[in-house]
Amino acid sequence: MTSTSRVRTVLVLAVLVLVVVGTVPVAVAAQSESRSGGTVVVEAGETVDELEAFAGTVIIEGTVTGDVSAVAGSVQIDGAVGGDVEAAAGSVQIDGSVDGDVEAAAGSLEITDEATIGGDLSVGAGSVLIDGTLEGDAKIGAETIQLGDDASIAGDLRYGGSLEGNTDAVAGEITEDSSIGIDLTGTAVPIASWLFSAYVLALNLLLGAALLALFPRFSDGIADRVATDPLRAGLTGFALLVGIPVLLVAAAITVIGIPFAVVGAFGFALLIWIGIIYGRYAVAAWLLSLVGVDNRWLALVVGLVAGAVLAQLPVLGGLLNLLVFLLGLGALGFGLYAHRRQVREQESHGESGPGGPTAD
């Protein structure tokens, strides 16, 4: 491997480490900060002034003396929160204590029998289960609202949806209001979706920029493949998408093959990620070339932004992104195969092969 190739390899690894940092667990320092990552954790015994988190999972096992604001796939509160909690998530579960109010837009909300909420509760969700103590009023909009045997609501309950269970747990008045669910979920959930898309877009731009900077000719070759032979690229992408998982499952059947299957699964996930980026870049480069624009950086930005916007469209957006991904995955497969064949030819002639996908 030449010195240039070694430098490229180090740069690739460094960029991948920076990108992956956004997907690994992040422990929160004992201060008021905004944190993002695959998992944001306030560890048991740890104290944080305030917490603003955007992550796949937010877990609070320690203490937050102030407010908590979270946008996540799931939010788990096992510790203590001294202020208010605002959450937009797929699921929210409270096992600990919250001294202030709780406002949530979620697929599901569960307040267990060990939980205590000192303020009011405002929720818009698919399902709500309350089995803990609520010292204020409750305003809940959900398809199903279940009050457990250990539930205790000191104030009033206004709800929209189907109320079931221990209604004697409500000390105040119970009022049905069908408009509550619309009011609470109409804004928070779309905002959460767009924030998550912005986070993914930033990671895609970082990795895409690294690929174009380190392997410009290889990247141009993928764009050319998509533009000149989209049918073959798409069919190849489909074959890879179906065939590689089958091979991994077959390898995992044997004890010897399990480690290879595990490593292969991580490699396949990375291949999919790169295929998505290259697909969007290649299609955007082709469309820009139709109007006489030839700029790989502009194509990267336009392609990734357009893909993120399409992801917000139901059905049609998903289908278009799938097609673009298959084009990128297939062209990437062709490019890697061509590179491997070139390396073998050079080795057969006694030449040293390049250290990356292309000798740019």
Rank of each mutant, 00 (worst) to 15 (best):
Glu164Trp: 06
Asp224Phe: 00
Val10Asp: 00
Ala80Phe: 11
Val301Asn: 02
Gly45Ser: 10
Ala269Pro: 06
Ala233Pro: 01
Leu18Pro: 00
Ala299Ser: 13
Ala104Lys: 12
Gly237Pro: 04
Gly62Glu: 07
Phe54His: 11
Ala29Leu: 09
Gly82Arg: 01
Ala227Glu: 13
Val309Met: 11
Ile244Phe: 11
Gly155Met: 06
Gln346Ser: 10
Phe268Glu: 03
Val301Ser: 05
Glu347Lys: 09
Arg217Thr: 09
Thr23Trp: 13
Ile153Gln: 14
Gly37Asp: 09
Gly208Asn: 07
Ala269Trp: 09
Ser69Trp: 00
Asp220Tyr: 12
Glu86Cys: 00
Gly317Phe: 07
Pro357Ala: 10
Ala227Met: 03
Leu320Phe: 14
Leu313Met: 12
Ile60Gln: 04
Leu240Ile: 10
Ala87Tyr: 05
Glu135Phe: 00
Val68Pro: 03
Leu320Ser: 06
Val21Arg: 12
Gly160Gln: 01
Val71Asp: 04
Thr167Gln: 15
Ala30Glu: 12
Val189Ile: 15
Leu16Asp: 01
Ile272Cys: 00
Ala188Leu: 11
Thr236Met: 12
Leu121Trp: 02
Asp294Val: 12
Asp177Ser: 13
Ala106Phe: 05
Ala261Gly: 11
Asp84Phe: 04
Ala239Gln: 05
Leu231Ala: 15
Val302Arg: 10
Leu13Glu: 01
Arg8Cys: 07
Thr185Gln: 09
Glu110Phe: 08
Leu300Lys: 09
Gly155Thr: 05
Ala138His: 04
Pro357Gln: 10
Leu121Ser: 02
Asp78Thr: 08
Ala115Trp: 15
Ala106Cys: 06
Ile244Lys: 02
Asp294Gln: 10
Val315Leu: 14
Thr116Lys: 14
